[in-house]
Design a protein around this nucleic acid. Structure first.
Length: 592
DNA sequence: GCCGTTTTCGGCCCGACTGTTTTCAGTCG
């Protein structure tokens, strides 16, 4: 059972309690919803935690829920959950997937149209009923509700995967630019997961500061690229842009903008923790500002900037990337927040594929070494590594592989000489290779070939479905080769397409620490791998990380900022990232 | 049902928008 499935079950339990007796179960409902959230955002599989007896360590899962989940993992179901959901129509849980339909509405629809809602496709049945005008006839519903349901169903059906960060950022940037063209808009910022630079983004949210909120809402809803206006209030508005992507705007006057920015940047978990803390200090936080109690009255203090907002509760300003309630609140209170690594501190790109014909079975780069060097100079790097895939093993003998690698070494040797003569910008090109790990953990390059390299990366490109132990042993075996320094795109995940390989991270991190091996943060937007949560684990233990774009074209080298975002979300500082070092220091580290 | 730097009891985040209502319920973030 996956985390997503467990989270869904917990949410269904919460919905069931809501229907049975909302008043009586008020806090139980919150508890189950929180537990559901917690499981959904877990960095490891709940099943694995259960295996290790650590399920109860998850904040939000206590004695009782842990026991029910234990029953589910052992027997496939929970008697208690079945009892709670007893008497409720099965189809209602499916209908709740439609935005705007919650527990109550779903229950009413499922009960009312019992015979007309098919078990195999409840949402499809509902759509038919809506088309016939049946929904509008229900008490408390009307034409507008029916239309809203139809539109939502359409969106559910055409729902694309979550956006990758760069695309979401681009949508946000274009709208921010549009907003700032209006004279009455003082400032505009991305909110939510875009501002926190999460790897994927659902909806794009934007804030704007203006003394003319009405005008700003009007202006926003007439954005030329909007295909539809979802809502239009006094303070917020929502539109749909190309690809069915929703963009929400929050408007505030400049004197209260800080509280708004803080609130809608989130994350939800960060805000909840923050508000609970504020209550203990006698304040109440909201997106309008901070309420202070005076003589039994609540007085609103408006907050123009985020810095002032955090300062008011005795905290340092927290970089948005850290706002996940993962310890940043405690650190901000103690003034021990890390100084996060910055893009300007990156001195090299450690994964680049040129068009050198290395006769690999994988994809070869599209740009020449010459063009890639020019790009590296443009980016102000001191060094780069050419890391083409290894020559294919099936088509080459060991001797042929060694010959190819010799040719590549010579070519890079010549290029390095030219750099030395020019004596500016880029100082050194490293001769590296991204080597497949065979399923056994063996490397498809003979030792004599490895000796030709400055250092090597290893990565997984096949057999993604090995068992946890098999895969872990494979990685450790492959990394044990002396020339191998970096484990590239370690989980092998592709966002929205493929889960990563199931690995025992405790073991791998321990290995990296003891053998001084490095983990790559791959900056390719669909990878962003190592994931931020594992970056944080690695940083905690003191494992060094590298940044590489995995560029197969000069343009790919522009992806470095996304990798830096992942590093920052994992609390990495300059010292944690190897390629923030000067060339001389980096060379020393390679020899360790 | 969960949780603890005032607590193992007594709390539990805050507010907007929509639609269908004459004061609110449901849903969402």
């Amino acid at each position: 059972m996956t985390n997503l499935e467990i989270a869904e079950v917990l949410r269904h339990v919460a919905a069931s309690y809501k229907l049975k007796d909302e008043k009586k179960n008020r806090f139980k409902i919150i508890a189950y919803e929180r537990a559901s959230d917690a499981v959904e955002h877990l960095s490891s599989e709940a099943k694995d935690l259960w295996d290790d007896g650590k399920l109860k360590d998850v904040a939000g899962i206590g004695e009782s829920i842990a026991a029910h989940l234990d029953e589910i993992f052992r027997t496939g179901k929970s008697k208690h959950f079945s009892e709670v959901m007893k008497g409720l129509p099965e189809s209602m849980f499916e209908l709740m997937k439609v935005p705007g339909i919650g527990a109550k509405t779903a229950f009413r629809l499922s009960s009312k149209f019992k015979s007309k809602i098919s078990a195999s496709d409840p949402i499809g049945s509902l759509e038919k009923l809506a088309h016939k005008g049946e929904i509008a006839k229900l008490p408390g519903m009307g034409e507008d509700s029916q239309d809203a349901i139809l539109k939502s169903i359409k969106e559910v059906k055409g729902r694309t995967i979550r956006l990758l960060l760069p695309y979401a950022t681009q949508i946000a940037d274009e709208i921010i630019e549009y907003l700032l063209e209006a004279k009455f808009v003082k400032s505009a910022d991305a909110l939510g997961s875009v501002r926190r630079k999460a790897s994927t983004v659902g909806d794009v949210d934007i804030a704007c500061a203006t003394n003319y909120p009405k005008k700003a809402i009007e202006y926003f809803t007439s954005y030329p690229k909007a295909s539809r206006v979802l809502e239009k209030g006094e303070r917020t508005a929502g539109i749909v842009v190309a690809g069915g992507r929703q963009v929400d705007l929050m408007v505030e006057t400049p004197d209260a903008y800080g509280a708004l920015l803080q609130h809608f940047t989130g994350s939800k978990h960060h805000n909840i923790a923050l508000r609970e803390l504020a209550i203990k200090k006698g304040f109440s936080l909201s997106d309008y500002g901070i309420y202070i109690k005076k003589k039994g009255k609540k007085i609103l203090k408006k907050i123009p900037t985020e810095e002032e907002f955090y300062k008011f509760i005795d905290m340092d300003w927290i970089p948005p990337e850290l706002r996940e309630d993962m310890g940043e609140i405690e650190a901000a209170l103690n003034h021990t927040l890390p100084k996060l690594v910055d893009l300007s501190e990156i001195k090299g790109d450690l994964q680049i594929h040129s068009d050198f014909d290395i006769e690999t079975s994988h994809d070869i780069g599209e740009s020449t070494m010459f063009d890639l060097v020019a790009k590296a100079n443009e980016l102000g790097y001191e060094y780069i590594a050419f890391t083409e895939h290894n020559p294919s093993r099936g088509k080459h003998s060991d001797k042929q592989i060694i010959d190819i690698l010799k040719r590549k070494k010579e070519k890079i040797y010549k290029l390095n000489n030219e750099l030395r003569i020019k004596n500016k910008g880029l100082k050194r090109i490293f001769n590296s290779l991204e080597i497949d790990m065979l399923p056994s953990g063996k490397l498809p390059v003979p030792d004599e070939g490895l000796e030709l390299l400055d250092f090597a990366l290893v990565s997984i490109h096949s057999s993604f479905r090995q068992s946890r132990d098999e895969a872990t042993n494979r990685v450790i075996a492959a990394m044990s080769s002396p020339k191998v320094k970096i484990f590239a795109h370690p989980t092998g995940r592709k966002l929205g397409k493929r889960e990563g390989v199931d690995l025992n991270w405790e073991k791998i991190l321990e290995f990296c620490k003891s053998k001084n091996k490095w983990l790559e943060i791959n900056a390719e937007p669909m990878r962003l791998d190592l994931p931020d949560i594992l970056v944080k684990d690695a940083v905690n233990i003191g494992i060094k990380l590298t940044l590489g774009t995995d560029a197969h074209h000069v343009n790919g080298m522009d992806n470095m900022p996304w990798g830096v975002s992942v590093a920052r979300r994992g609390w990495a500082q300059i010292g944690d990232i190897v390629n923030t070092r000067s060339l001389e220091e980096f060379e020393r580290m390679l020899e360790l």
